[in-house]
Design a protein around this nucleic acid. Structure first.
Length: 439
DNA sequence: AGGTTAAGCGCG
DNA sequence: AAAGCGCGCTTAACCT
């Protein structure tokens, strides 16, 4: 009986898959760009199979040492928190934390969560930490628990006990922009932004006789923005080999490039990233800790200096509304059913996605082309170098010592050479005994 | 026991 | 009225 039900299901599943194929295949063949993207996905899947099968070697004892140290500090923090609160409680429970903070200790409520609970997220805790001792303990406890629970404990558990390697799975059809996603374990969110977190990367190693190489695209999304917008100032900044955030600051603040302070450069960097994501004056103000008017002035000033970017953003929005989708340089589409929604928040969300997707998606297209190209060369030349990870704008390799010079020389060349945009692509490679050093 | 959702946080 | 794009994982809390 169960066999028959399974058979019935299998037939129906195959039949409907065939219907989908018959509907979509002619559309793919009729459009050169869609055919290119389809072809890229098939080739990518073949390269990704190799990457997944390779896996990455993990230094288990190093992670165990880190887990132990984190565990000790976590217990200390728990005891310090109990002393301040006057009672033990679960530091990992937002609900219990809310009761201690807002009911027992009478701390002010800064904001509410989506469901109306009193928020205890990082931003709230940072603010409360200025006036009270407990929030700082919670913040440190949260970050260390995250490191231990998600990385130092988990990666060691997930390594193959015979080979010491972890094998992630890459999903090719999850991220709507065309990016890959990585799961079980996710190797695309390994810490790097803090010194403590970064140590996890020391446990991503190569076997004896090999080293780790990391090759990443430099400012790829801003280069793509320069290409798509045809903005003269942005193109020139890249063409002249300038530090693009510094160049942006020079324009926005009306200075020469070498007069830009580090503070001004930091502002420009936030502005540049904000633009890629469709950030508003409100968002920029919050990100920079300045008032709304000042943020609005920066944006106005930016769009005066980079008029091509302004035009591109407006055109992209208009095009999305007119045809219902946006596309990457190579023709990958993102459909935006809510772009003309009557509900303003939904419409605004779709507009931000419309701005971002061509840039994020083109970057995804380019690194897929790189992976396919490099894997093909490695095979054709019968090299020992293996691709072991992809992290959106970065490829990580395990490299036999004899091939180090080849990787240094050739990998960035292949990555930069996959396409000729209006601005040159640039890839940089680093080598080392582990992923932290290589980066 | 097992699944789902909310809150929170790691990355590009 | 909301306010920055794209993901995956962990824990607590709640539900069946």
């Amino acid at each position: 009986m169960e066999i028959e039900r399974a058979g019935e299901y299998a037939c129906e599943d195959a039949d409907m898959t065939m219907d989908v194929h018959l509907a979509l295949w002619p559309q793919l063949q009729a459009d050169e760009k869609l055919a290119f993207i389809y072809d890229l996905e098939i080739k990518s899947s073949e390269a990704l199979f190799r990457v997944e099968r390779n896996g990455v070697l993990i230094d288990g004892p190093k992670l165990a040492t880190q887990s132990h140290a984190l565990g000790q500090r976590i217990v200390e923090l728990e005891n310090e928190a109990y002393a301040i609160a006057g009672q033990p409680f679960n530091l990992a429970s937002p609900k219990q934390l809310g009761e201690i903070f807002f009911d027992k200790l009478g701390l002010p409520v800064v904001k509410k969560t989506a469901t109306g609970a009193r928020s205890t997220d990082e931003e709230v805790l940072e603010k409360l930490a200025q006036d009270y001792p407990l929030p700082a303990k919670i913040l440190e406890h949260r970050s260390l628990s995250k490191l231990k629970g998600t990385y130092t404990d988990k990666l060691a558990q997930m390594a193959n006990p015979k080979t010491g390697r972890v094998h992630t799975h890459y999903a090719q059809a999850v991220a709507v922009t065309g990016r890959l996603s990585s799961n079980d374990p996710n190797l695309q969110n390994i810490p790097i932004r803090t010194p403590e977190g970064r140590k996890v990367r020391e446990a991503f190693v190569a076997p004896a006789g090999s080293v780790i190489a990391s090759a990443d695209y430099s400012q790829i999304e801003l280069r793509i923005m320069a290409h798509l917008s045809d903005d003269a100032a942005l193109l020139k900044a890249f063409h002249d080999g300038l530090d693009v955030h510094r160049a942006t600051a020079a324009e926005v603040f009306g200075l020469s490039v070498d007069q830009v302070s580090s503070e001004q450069r930091r502002y420009a960097k936030v502005i540049n990233f904000g633009l890629i994501y469709g950030m508003s004056a409100f968002g920029l103000a919050k990100a920079l800790g300045i008032d709304n008017t000042a943020a609005k002035n920066y944006i106005t000033r930016y769009f005066e200096r980079f008029a091509g970017v302004k035009r591109y953003m407006d055109d992209t929005r208009d095009q999305a509304k007119a045809q219902g989708f946006v596309q990457t340089v190579f023709g990958r589409r993102l459909y935006l059913p809510e772009i003309n929604s009557a509900a303003a928040p939904r419409r605004a969300g779709a507009e931000r996605a419309a701005i971002n997707a061509p840039m994020q998606g083109t970057a995804a297209d380019l690194i897929k082309m790189s992976m396919v190209k490099i894997q093909n060369v490695l095979d054709a030349e019968q090299r020992g170098t293996r691709i072991i990870m992809q992290v959106h704008d970065e490829l990580v390799f395990e490299v036999p010592e004899a091939e180090v010079e080849w990787v240094k020389q050739e990998v960035p060349r292949y990555m930069a050479g996959v396409a000729q945009l209006k601005v040159a692509l640039l890839a940089e490679v680093g080598l080392g005994v582990n992923w932290d050093v290589a980066h």
